[in-house]
Amino acid sequence: MARPRTYKSEGIILKGIPLGEADRIVTIYTLGSGKLRLVAKGVRRSRSRMSGYLEPLTYVSISVAEGRNIDTITEVEIIQSFREIREDLLLVSKGLYFAEIVDKFTVDRSPGSAEFKLLFDGLGRLKASYTTDLALRYFEMQMLKITGFGPEIYQCVECHTELEVDSHGFSNLKGGILGSECRSKSSEPSAAISVGAIKLLRYLQNESYDRVMGLNIPEVLLVDVEKLLGSYIRYVLDKKIKSKEFIGLISS
């Protein structure tokens, strides 16, 4: 038999599912090749050299052997373990949320360095005492933008005129803000959106992370924008995000 071709890569583990008796199928978001699904043999056995290196939210470098149906991880080294995340339940749930967003917004073997950077920075910024919900909203908006689903928040999605400073509607279907006039004539469902929420969406879409985190946002507005982005993401993906439910469960 010919020796299998091998390659090296590095990336962040998104998730794993047990396979057979002691193997695991690992989903990893790599810097060069995007999302890969790989098999790790024997990792659930205690004596495996690799066990513990392939946990979700770990940044690793790997050697991989090509296979007929699925490639196999042959070696792993940890680049960054993000240990402080896994020691805090709320941080774990937020880290898993980032990973789930990346997993659901991307397809296998489609390179995306912006997605990788967003995830890497997102995990690096999850710090013990305090990561506000604003950081989650920033992550959501940036992922929407990177993957081409960034909502239209400057012009009316119907008549394309510049929006006036006023409350309008937000249409998931049209992917953005529906001006108040067009909204009153439209029979399609849209959620009401306040001036404050529109401003915050614009910040999330166009400003740096540090500027966004420097904002002092009233709780009510944060809740509004969370609902709005949450509903839009559910519409775009047509899937529930399970880790979001879990965050809700433990922050209450």
Partner: peptide, 8 residues
């Protein structure tokens, strides 16, 4: 060992 299953 981290990552291993209890059963093993």
């Amino acid at each position: 060992p981290v990552g291993g299953d209890l059963e093993y």
